[in-house]
Each structure stands twice: as structure tokens, then as C-alpha cells.
């Protein structure tokens, strides 16, 4: 219990630091993001004093009091008020984020879980049959695939399966004629559009899980208790799964937790190539259009979700491996 409380305290402290960091970054930058933002917003019509005050609270006033801005900013964050987007004027930032989140969560989230499960299983097999083709094929193939730049794999897949073969749609999350609803027809359409981005993420992330599990497993297989279990005449599969893999998976859980936290950030490069309307694509649009309110809100959200995931992994780790509790 003390362990959990300590971690919880740390979480709160880190959350505060991340929020503060998000406040400090634009203010440390050369030039004035605020002026640029107001100039940009003025193109859409007159800027009211209220809007100007909101921007100044978010991005800083040159020469203004940091403390007052900070208090305003914290208030805005707590009420989830991130202001108005410049790119998609006059939509609220929070509304845009809420619209993009489900696409990312479902597509990237499912693929991440799938990649972890598959990669771990293959890694266990590779380590158990070390030195045979079961080992060398996935390790060499996996490390080659994970060395591919994400966006390049995506481009190749778009080119060959999208344009040349024409099997899959090359962009978007659903057909232009469809409207999002919960019918089977729409779900099928969405799945069809998610196939290529999902395949890209699976291909590029699988290798890391395979290698991580294989190496951890090889180390565990050398431990005395594994030799002892084998000497006791236990079946090979029992030794591999119940004795070795169970312990070898621990370090990989940390990575998995981080990856799950990262899901919220989406897969920026892949979403950009496929124009998939998720969080990553939204962030890309915000950055290329210098849409600072949207950028700040997305960055904060991504950071907070990674933080919370990290906290949960810490707790889980403490339960699974009592040695780390001290």
C-alpha cells in the first residue's frame, strides 16, 4: 500500500511537471508565438479581447507576468478549455481532439496489443529453439523490418498494395460516401480502410517485441531453476512457458505499458501517409499550420496518457515482481 501511495504521489508530481513544461516550451522559444498566432487568427476575422487574453494565457505575452499567465493556464487546463483552433476555425480544440481520438484508439490500440502478443509468442519460440531456423528467421527478419523507417514501409505498402495492385484504399478512415454509424456495412468499410495502416504498424513494431522477448528468454533459460526443471524431467513446453517465459516477460511489460500509453499519440508518420484522421494526423496538421492551441492540447494529452500508463505499469510490476517494491 505504501508503494502504491508513493507511486501515486510521484504521478501527481510528474503530471504537474508535464503541464508546466507544456507552459514553458512556447515561452522559451525565440520570437513570439503569440504574435504569430494572433496575426494568423486575424485572417479569420476581428480578434476579440477575450480571445486575445486566452491566447496570451496559453502562449505567453512578451514582457508580461508569467505568474498570472500560469494561473490562467492552469485554470484552463483543469477545465479542459484549450481555446479555438486556427486551422479549423471556429471549432473548439477539445471537439477536434474528441473527434480524432476514437480512430486512433481503436486502430493503433488493437494493433499494438496484437503486435505484443504475437511478438512475445514468436520470441519465446525463437529462444526455445535457438540456433534453428525458427530462431534465425524471425530474429533477422524482425530486426530488418523494425529498422525500416515507419513512413517508408507505409509508402511502399501504399504504392504496391494501394496504387499498383489496387486492393486497398490509399487514404482516409472510411469511404467518402459513408457517414459514421454503427451498422455492419460501415464497420466493414472502416476495417477495410484500416487494413493498410494497421499492417504497417504491425510489421514495423513486431520485430522489437520478438527481439526483446528472445533475449530476455535466453538469459532466463540459463538460470539454475530452469536447468533444475529440465533435470526433473518436466515437459519442454512446461519448462519454456511456466518456468522461463513467465519470468522473462517481466522486462517487456514495461515496454508494453509505455507502448499502450503511446497509443493515444497515434502513429504520426503512418497516419500522415495514409491521411488517417487520428490524433497523429491532427497533430501533423496542427504543426504544419502552426496551430499552437491545437498543438499544445494534443501534446499535453499525449504526455498525460503516457504518464498514467507508466504509473499503472509500475503498480503492476510491483505486484508481479516483489523485489522492485523497495
Amino acid at each position: 500500500m505504501r508503494y502504491v501511495l508513493r507511486r501515486l504521489g510521484l504521478l501527481v508530481l510528474t503530471l504537474w511537471a508535464a503541464v508546466t513544461l507544456n507552459f514553458v516550451i512556447p515561452r522559451l522559444m525565440p520570437g513570439s508565438p503569440t504574435d504569430a498566432a494572433i496575426a494568423k487568427l486575424a485572417q479569420n476575422g476581428p480578434v476579440t479581447p477575450a480571445v486575445q487574453a486566452a491566447i496570451e494565457a496559453q502562449l505567453g505575452v512578451p514582457g508580461g507576468s508569467w505568474w498570472n499567465q500560469y494561473v490562467d493556464y492552469l485554470g484552463n487546463v483543469l477545465t479542459l478549455d484549450f481555446g479555438v483552433s486556427y486551422t479549423f476555425f471556429p471549432q473548439q480544440v477539445s471537439g477536434l481532439v474528441a473527434g480524432a481520438l476514437p480512430w486512433t484508439l481503436i486502430m493503433v490500440g488493437l494493433v499494438t496489443v496484437l503486435a505484443f502478443v504475437l511478438g512475445t509468442l514468436i520470441g519465446v519460440g525463437a529462444a526455445w529453439r535457438r540456433g534453428t531456423w525458427v530462431d534465425s528467421l524471425p530474429t533477422v527478419g524482425g530486426s530488418f523490418l523494425s529498422a525500416f523507417p515507419y513512413f517508408w514501409t507505409a509508402l511502399l505498402i501504399v504504392f504496391f498494395l494501394g496504387y499498383v495492385a489496387g486492393w486497398f484504399p490509399t487514404s482516409g478512415a472510411y469511404s467518402a460516401t459513408a457517414t459514421p454509424n454503427l451498422s455492419w456495412q460501415f464497420l466493414g468499410d472502416a476495417l477495410y480502410h484500416a487494413a493498410l495502416p494497421a499492417a504497417t504498424i504491425l510489421l514495423t513494431s513486431l520485430g522489437g517485441w520478438i527481439l526483446g522477448m528472445r533475449n530476455a528468454m535466453i538469459n532466463t533459460l540459463g538460470e539454475d531453476y530452469v536447468t533444475f526443471a529440465e533435470a526433473n524431467g518436466l515437459r519442454g513446453r512446461t519448462v519454456a512457458v511456466r518456468y522461463a517465459a513467465r519470468n522473462a516477460i517481466l522486462p517487456n511489460l514495461t515496454g508494453f505499458g509505455m507502448a499502450l500509453g503511446g497509443v493515444v499519440g497515434g502513429s504520426l508518420l503512418v497516419e500522415q501517409v495514409f491521411a488517417y484522421p487520428g490524433v497523429g494526423y491532427l497533430l501533423y496538421n496542427a504543426v504544419t499550420n502552426q496551430d499552437f492551441p491545437l498543438m499544445q492540447a494534443l501534446f499535453l494529452m499525449i504526455t498525460v496518457s503516457v504518464l498514467v500508463a507508466n504509473f499503472l505499469v509500475d503498480i503492476l510490476y510491483g505486484i508481479l515482481d516483489p523485489r522492485t517494491r523497495r
Binding site: 510528474t14 508535464a18 509505455m258 504520426l268 504543426v287 501534446f299 499525449i302 504526455t303 503516457v306 507508466n310
Partner: peptide, 13 residues
């Protein structure tokens, strides 16, 4: 932890 949680690519961007 603070540096770890800052998601690399978004922060870089």
C-alpha cells in the same frame, strides 16, 4: 520519468 514520458516524436515535432 519526466523525460521518458515526453513522447519522443511529438516533442521533437
Amino acid at each position: 520519468n519526466l523525460f521518458l514520458v515526453m513522447p519522443g516524436l511529438p516533442l521533437m515535432i
